[in-house]
Amino acid sequence: MASLKELRNRIASVKATQKITKAMQMVAAAKLRRAQAAAESARPYAERMERMLGNIAASVTPTPESPKLLVGTGKSDVHLLLVCTAERGLCGAFNSQIVRLARERANALQAEGKTVKFLCVGRKGFEQLRRQYEKQILEVVDLRAARTLGYEHAADIAQKVVARFEAGEFDICTLFYSRFKSVISQIPTAQQIIPPVFEQKDTGSGGAVYEYEPDEEEILGELLPRNLATQVFRALLENAASEQGARMSAMDNATRNAGDMIRRQTIIYNRTRQAMITKELIEIISGAEAL
């Protein structure tokens, strides 16, 4: 049985850990509020952008000359998986969930005989994917230095993707991120961004024919890369909010577990202490009786 001193040390160390997890939970809660506000205020832009693109896409009949970013290359041999994860751990299953989804997709595609390539945003996802797909990872984007996520970061990533697409490195690009639903629920999501998939819904144009200035092709040429950046930006913001939410609930759990452990250890400590006192008493009494 552990000595009293050992037990005391163990309790002290669990208490110290509990303080840390508690602090992390509170920091995550504060950051979550900001991240959630940012994610929510970015939604209108992404939605309007999608709607506008949908309107134009619907009015353009696909021809071989149509922009490749819109209609695709016509093949689906090489897939690029753009996996967005966090830079830090200690946030429950947040990173693993996204990676698991990406890995399942990658394995399914490879089973069909397609080539899969990765572009990782965030260190954690890269570390997990590296074990299995070391050679297929084209690039890692590190956002650790970024204090606040800006549109520039997303624009940078989108530019990299477009450059690779134009160089013919892949045919289809899918974006993986975690959609923020609530603090306790984040949904890992896969979204195909090249060529974009439009949900069929009311576009607000009422079937009207738009006038374009200068012309469709040129507008699409500008709109498509921007749409890509917007989608990436949205993914990054949703991810940021999800990460903080996941961390908050993970740390809440950890704090609670630490509390339970302290309670159990304290009971053991008290029992041991009482047992020792009883033992000493018995020794004194039996010593006295022997006289």
Binding site: I56, S205, E211, Y212, E213
Partner: peptide
Amino acid sequence: PGAEGDFGVLAGHAPFITP
């Protein structure tokens, strides 16, 4: 400020897209 020149929009403007 449109790419091809400024334009004013009033109620009932025709459907139009420009950078």
